[in-house]
Nucleic acid binder design. Structure first.
Lengths: 163, 163
DNA sequence: CAAAATAATATGCATTTGCAATTATAAATC
DNA sequence: GATTTATAATTGCAAATGCATATTATTTTG
């Protein structure tokens, strides 16, 4: 019932339409809707800190993986490269990230989070956790774990880069 | 390990930072990244059909639930009300949706998908299924089902409306 | 039932976005 | 090793977005 094609017969059945599956059984719909709420909830908190979604995502990634080239950071942060370029401009001028030329490839600029950047993220982090906990309210630890395991497989399936 | 706070002790432990959890164990990060890819992949197909993400989402929802007030459609489609208002303008002038005044509340405009709208969505649907299948490649039916079940709980947790 | 509060939709406007083109550097090819 | 091709990052520009507000209609309240 959850394998969208091939449910009944062997090959080339007519693909069921969305109406037959139902919005609430279609994983991408549910994920978009949940993340839409998550991101909207956080945007409010970010505005107060002078951050935007792309800026926040860049900081979040950089808090985990440092000194990333911009192109790579764009993939991790799920932000268009040109959008990220401009976000980094602002983050740098606000002193939340630092730009260092790559020593071996002078095309590359490596981005690092600064102490001020970490402090900004730390201010936001409790809200992120709060929204996260609301999202997983009453969902037991094993179910959360299984969910994340499936997500990891999915990311592997759709990712176009090695990172 | 997946319950972000309260992992070790009873109350008010210091909240672990994102760096300690790791990006690939943080469900919202994974979900944003997967859906970023999903939406980017589809955007290419949509462009060829003269559609945008908000337009496509509106059509997808309307193919399942018809004659929705704009405000309600905005929630289902995960699109800002003002953005949706403008998207519907275009969809209507392209003949893909119809606007009908609500008979009992004259503030409300109810939106329905037209035959042409269904045809446009039908053209996109195979791509949506293809991206979906890629996403869940090698993930068995029971795991998909469990995943959707968790998503449904999550949506219930974060939703702010009855629908 | 008049006045105030709420709700649905549209719109003005500044900002953000994404795409395409540009610039600068590096790698590959002939 | 000069020329072509590929890659990293920025930027110009038109279109899209989100917020606040305007407008019209409905519901609530005193």
């Amino acid at each position: 019932m959850n394998d969208i094609k091939s449910a009944v017969s062997e090959k080339s059945e007519p693909i069921p339409r969305l109406g037959e599956i139902g919005l609430s059984n279609f994983a991408p719909y549910l994920m978009n809707r949940i993340m839409g709420r998550y991101n909207a909830d956080l945007r409010q908190e970010m505005t107060g800190l002078g951050l935007t979604t792309p800026k926040m995502r860049a900081l979040a990634v950089l808090s985990v993986i440092d000194a990333l080239p911009i192109t790579e950071l764009a993939v991790y942060a799920v932000v268009e490269q040109s959008t990220l370029s401009r976000s980094l401009e602002q983050l740098a001028s606000d002193g939340l990230v630092r730009r260092d030329p790559d020593p071996t490839d002078s095309r590359v600029t490596r981005i690092s989070i600064t102490e001020a950047g970490r402090a900004a993220l730390d201010q936001l982090w409790p809200s992120m956790v709060r929204v996260y906990e609301q999202m997983f309210k009453d969902i037991p630890a094993e179910e959360r774990q299984a969910f994340v395991t499936t997500l990891q497989k999915m990311l592997n399936n759709v990712r176009k880069h090695d990172f």
